[in-house]
Amino acid sequence: MNNSLIVKVVSQKMVPFIIMLGASIILHGAATPGGGFQGGVVIGAAYILFALGIDAKTARLRLPVIKVKIVESAGVLIYAFTGLGGILLGSNFLANKIVLFPPQGEPGGLFGGGTLIPITIGVGIHVACTVASLYYAFVEYEGEPKPDKETE
């Protein structure tokens, strides 16, 4: 499969568009169906497609696992600090009356969710990185013996 030029080229060219779709789903998470998890999975799937097109080793060189893990933790911290912002500004955890994004926006619009925007972004980052690292964990697993016995 690695030899197929069509698979290689198409999978590489598709990646930016899929990531754009995922980002769009994440950013509109406050107002429409979708949100951090779904968009994050789309982005993670884009990365899996990228890694399938070229082989996993090369893809890993482009995006080392440790970087994926750092960004993954950063996603959670974005969520947590958005929540802590509520406490720091004198209200409750995850309170939505503080607006971190100056354009407050109409309810239902892109910025209508207030603090939901950073929250969905954090969730999306975390999920995308989780999907990518899960893929790595299974694909790059080494040290397995090669028993000739097969189960049904």
């Binding site: 911290l77 802590l84 406490i87 409750n92």
Partner: peptide, 25 residues
């Protein structure tokens, strides 16, 4: 907390543990 009869510690205990856990590795 400012306005309720609750305490911020009710959410801070799980939040601080989860945040630390995810940077611990």
């Amino acid at each position: 907390s400012a306005s309720d009869n609750g305490s911020h510690l009710q959410v801070l205990i799980p939040v601080m543990l989860i945040c630390t856990a995810l940077v611990l590795h």
